[in-house]
Design a protein around this nucleic acid. Sequence first.
DNA 1: GACCATCCTGTGGTCTGACCACACATGTGG
DNA 2: CCACATGTGTGGTCAGACCACAGGATGGTC
Lengths: 257, 257
Amino acid sequence: MQMTERVAPAVEDAPEAPWHPVTRSRSHELVLDQIEEQILAGTLRVGDRLPGERDLAGHLQVSRSAVREAIRGLEAQGVVRSGVGSGKDAGTIVSAMPSEALTRLLRLHVALSNFPLPDVVDARVMLERSSAALAADHAGEDDLDAMRAALDGMDSAGIGAERFNDLDTAFHVAIAEASGNRLVADMTIALRDSMRRPILHALEALGPDWEGVADQLRKDHRAIFAAIESGDGALAADRVDQHIRSAHAVLPFATHG
Amino acid sequence: MQMTERVAPAVEDAPEAPWHPVTRSRSHELVLDQIEEQILAGTLRVGDRLPGERDLAGHLQVSRSAVREAIRGLEAQGVVRSGVGSGKDAGTIVSAMPSEALTRLLRLHVALSNFPLPDVVDARVMLERSSAALAADHAGEDDLDAMRAALDGMDSAGIGAERFNDLDTAFHVAIAEASGNRLVADMTIALRDSMRRPILHALEALGPDWEGVADQLRKDHRAIFAAIESGDGALAADRVDQHIRSAHAVLPFATHG
DNA sequence: GACCATCCTGTGGTCTGACCACACATGTGG
DNA sequence: CCACATGTGTGGTCAGACCACAGGATGGTC
């Protein structure tokens, strides 16, 4: 069967954003819609296995390619995972990898400058303030250890900018993980990770001066850690706020153009 | 050419999250990686056109299917848009639709309960507090009109739960849009939208009592709007906070299982 | 010269049918 | 009872074909 139809959409105009699509006809999108609908309706849950690609294609009356392309879309959103072979990990299974998907998505859009840098900074401040405040209340010994490891690593003599930046990221991630709020943590991580590369480039652009900046960052981190360790959420939030804003003020970000 | 190799990953253990992938071998993922790399490196910018699928397949020495599946992945992340024909909109073009992609992603993961509901509520409160506070400062007449339209719509006699819920969403979206921060707005919208369906079901589950709840929501909304209109950011934030928390306390959410 | 119908070309969208690598289940020989 | 071959079903990959579409190039007509 060979088809390429056009469907007439029945759109109910919301007060915002009138118009909407018109192109909702590509068969792989229709397949995607059906699967998503089952997820939204609760028919498909985490751990459930989708029918085989060939079966699905047969039931939906589309080619296997269309089904596969739809699955790729879901995969990119961290909603399913596919495995070959048979048994346990085989087949296409609904699963939960929101963190990775969110990170990939934000990283790309930040790189494309779809979000102005000041907006990103403000968002980071907002998120990491919350993360730090929550972490001050919820952080367990494991969480604190992870932070200490990152801090100690950053103190290593002769550490390079790249390694330093990775550990810096790890420190912020550790705080987010300690917040106890999965969603806030994932958004925090995704945003910080999306800044990883830009920050590295900025550090490298500093040349020999980067050590001075690094020293300030080390001091900031230690101060933040102290506030979290002592359970002072408000103080931790303020220090994270100040840390992020001052860092972005000092770092020379390329305008990418 | 028929290939299915396994590559040995050279992973640098970060302090957090050891291990990592192992499966990075599927050809469409390799294609995806290459395109993403070009985006992250700044080689591909918004508006740029990718080579034709056939060309790309040739240069990368993979089948056209592999290329297409990679593109589907990018499409799901709102990073590219494909159009047939020739000229202007034809071809696969790097573009920016972060809002839609973010919304789809969060909606799915919220539906899958990958994020605990209390976490979602806290995140919403955090985001919408910021949005409301910013909106109080930045809202223009257009923004205020959009809010008024939603509010007036919700006052319509005999309005159904579904229409009410849509307008409720529109009100919150209008506030987010007025914040002036694209990223915060998109995250706010995505989260509120992901709650749209659950909230609707909760409203319907209330039966005839839903009118009483709706009345309270109307009062909340008017109070929030007044604070924003008068430019009192702190007050707006507090009222949004209270509004969201009380609403979630009253609404009977299905535990979905 | 202005105009319009026609063909050509290149794009993504779809379909078909085939083979590969893999992991498990089952059977079979020792 | 174990060790090995075989069968079966999964996703992964590929090649080649055709479709619908939109614009450009062509060539005719008035």
